[in-house]
Computed example of a mutant assay.
Amino acid sequence: MSPATAVALCALAWAVFLGAHLALNGRWWPWLAVSLLPPPLFAAAPLALLAAAAAAGSVPGAALAAGCLLAGWRESGVNWRALQRSSAPGVRPEGVRVVSWNTQHWNQGREPDRFYAFLHTVPADVYLLQEYLNGFEGGEVWDIDDEERLRDEFPGHHLSVDNNSVTLSRFPPAGPPVPVGACSLRVDLRTPDGVLSTYNVHIPVQLTVMNPLSRAFFRDMRRRHEARRREYDALVADLLANPHPFLVSGDFNTSAAIGDIRRMPRSARDAIGANRSLFPASWHARWKLRLWRIDWVFTSTGVRVERYAFRDPGGLSDHLAQDVTITTTDIEEMNG
């Protein structure tokens, strides 16, 4: 077999795999395990095949590799819009600053003073904090009550707590907090420009670490797939019925390579274009090599993302904090 033929066959095999991935990802529960592949692979594999095809002189291999690169680009997590930088580094635009962070079981096992000190290093108008709970030992989750400390630390903020989520806002709520599904929290805020809906999101993880050859592994994966679907369905239904402009942020436990993220409605626009990183990563915060993004920010029409960055929590969580500045000049008109 000639090198050109070998490259063409490898490119064909990748094209078949990519086709199956795009067709089954987010739709068939066993594919959830396959979707955990590193997102960069969906750019690296076709690029390597392109280089091999050029070296071997394989025109069919090059054509297949180029097609796979284009078809799988969204799966790669590459932020091409980072190349279109418009604002100078270090310049913080005016607007509403939102900090969203999965706290990894709040301050469990850590010094509370360090925990709150970090939050004060990112002074925000709105905080969307996930995993307001302790536990998971033996499968148990323990509710906590840190509201007194929260009110003491953030006296100028309004506090909303539900679904193991905390929303702190300088803007008063326009109504009671609304639990969305079992893991997210909607809070409508009265900003100077009108009502803005914030969604504090935490989608369940996909897998439990156990023997992947056991029946229990597959039962657990299917159960988690259904739980994730219910949470996405509840979130999407609320977004579609919401007349207000919105900002959705939190830990989706979903990389760019996981098809579940495609469940988000067209009205929810990914804010990553305001980030300056070509390959933005929010996890794993405790490792020197950050892997990929599983924390997201989405906004609706009328909400413009001016700046989007990730902040290192200094070992307090395995998630980086999302730091977003938005402007809301069109909200009042949208609210009628």
Rank of each mutant, 00 (worst) to 15 (best):
D143S: 13
Q84I: 00
A71S: 13
R170A: 14
L207W: 00
L36Q: 10
G336F: 01
L50Q: 11
G95F: 11
W287A: 15
P280N: 09
N211V: 07
A45L: 14
A55N: 00
Y232E: 03
D125E: 14
L50A: 13
F218L: 07
S317Y: 09
E94Q: 14
A281R: 14
V324N: 08
T198G: 00
R114S: 13
P38R: 08
G57T: 01
P243G: 04
V122P: 04
A44D: 01
D152R: 13
D146W: 00
L70S: 06
R74F: 03
D233N: 11
S267V: 13
A54S: 09
G61L: 07
R27L: 04
V297K: 05
T208L: 11
G61Q: 07
L289S: 09
R170C: 15
Q322Y: 03
G77I: 01
R223Y: 02
L168E: 07
G181D: 06
A11P: 10
I258V: 07
A62V: 03
R293D: 02
I261P: 00
H158A: 06
E131Q: 03
A182S: 11
W28F: 14
A216M: 08
W101Q: 10
V91C: 01
V297D: 14
T299A: 15
A56Y: 01
L291V: 05
R311T: 14
A182Y: 04
A20G: 14
H202Q: 06
L316R: 10
L289W: 12
R149Q: 12
P38H: 11
S317M: 07
R262D: 09
L207D: 01
M264I: 02
R224D: 03
T208H: 11
A227I: 00
S100Y: 12
T5C: 10
E333T: 10
L239Y: 10
H105G: 00
A52D: 06
L213H: 13
W80A: 14
G194S: 04
L47M: 14
P112T: 02
T329Q: 12
